[in-house]
Design a binder for these strands. Sequence first.
DNA 1: TCAGGGTTGTCAAACGTTCAACTACATGAC
DNA 2: GTCATGTAGTTGAACGTTTGACAACCCTGA
Lengths: 174, 174
Amino acid sequence: MAESTTRWLTGEEERAWRLFLTANQILFSAVEGQLQRDSDIPHGYYEILVRLSEADGRALRMSQLAEASTSSKSRLSHAVARLEERGWVERLDCPTDRRGQVARLTDVGYAALEAAAPGHAEQVRRSVFDRLTSEQVSQLAVISAAIATGPRLPGVDVTTCPSACDAEPDELDA
Amino acid sequence: MAESTTRWLTGEEERAWRLFLTANQILFSAVEGQLQRDSDIPHGYYEILVRLSEADGRALRMSQLAEASTSSKSRLSHAVARLEERGWVERLDCPTDRRGQVARLTDVGYAALEAAAPGHAEQVRRSVFDRLTSEQVSQLAVISAAIATGPRLPGVDVTTCPSACDAEPDELDA
DNA sequence: TCAGGGTTGTCAAACGTTCAACTACATGAC
DNA sequence: GTCATGTAGTTGAACGTTTGACAACCCTGA
């Protein structure tokens, strides 16, 4: 990289970045820990279950699910395979495209999600929202949106979001 | 969990939480991707190198390093072993405590860090700080501090921070 | 000097992710 | 029709990380 062109972080930015980093570590280890401990669900699986639970017929094409989960196809494929073993998800052939597969949340899977949700919500509340004023909550939303959207980030080729960037999720989750 | 006691997230909180989640995914995949691609350094290793580079004599006791990295002992032990293979870190016997080991950043390791830093800083800037006003930067710092510190999080037993809670890192990083 | 309590670090097994084929199907041009 | 090209999803192996059991060690007090 061109040395003289390097735009280093300012002191304030540096400080914010470090705080953000440690906050993230603490936050996610708490949230994932709770989910794992109380419900035996890895955080990643939980997100998949949530996406499915919100979809029409609680079912989604594999590729759509991958996109919604910001996940690669193969990664998702393995994850769904494991969810299938637990009996939480089932795979069906797609009626309109014979290449495709549809993942559907089973009743058992839905029940597992319903059982896990309260504890998860409580944890997110304790780790985050109990600590913030309502003004800070909206600041957090604005900041997150700025980071999540906008000009594609150089350095990732996430097959940059045809529909992910304008998505505005505001249904239930925790 | 007691059903009636569940404190669900409000719509605003829900929205903020989801935005935060996707922002995180995008941000970290960009930052980690850059580091991996341009410098072949996993993000976790980078943090370790930074901690060491800031320590006296560029050396730190294993346990102190683990604490500074919010990392478990065994996790750190593995990481240092791999850094040692690359010739970036060396392990020495601790002179004052014969139980202990000291990890020290080698000159080669320091050079690797110096080489990686500009690209990393640039990426963090693009992913985060170019997108935020300076007011938002300080909001982010305050919010992160609120999440990172304060009352111990129920749900984790992080052997709750004798010294981690009051730590206030504001040296260099990116 | 010897035990008990606590800490420090290592090792091996379990788990999850990534990578690189590979199958199967769809689509458009000729 | 059929050929080339692109898309959907799966699979297995290599790789890295995390976990828990274990061994080595220090320090205090009798």
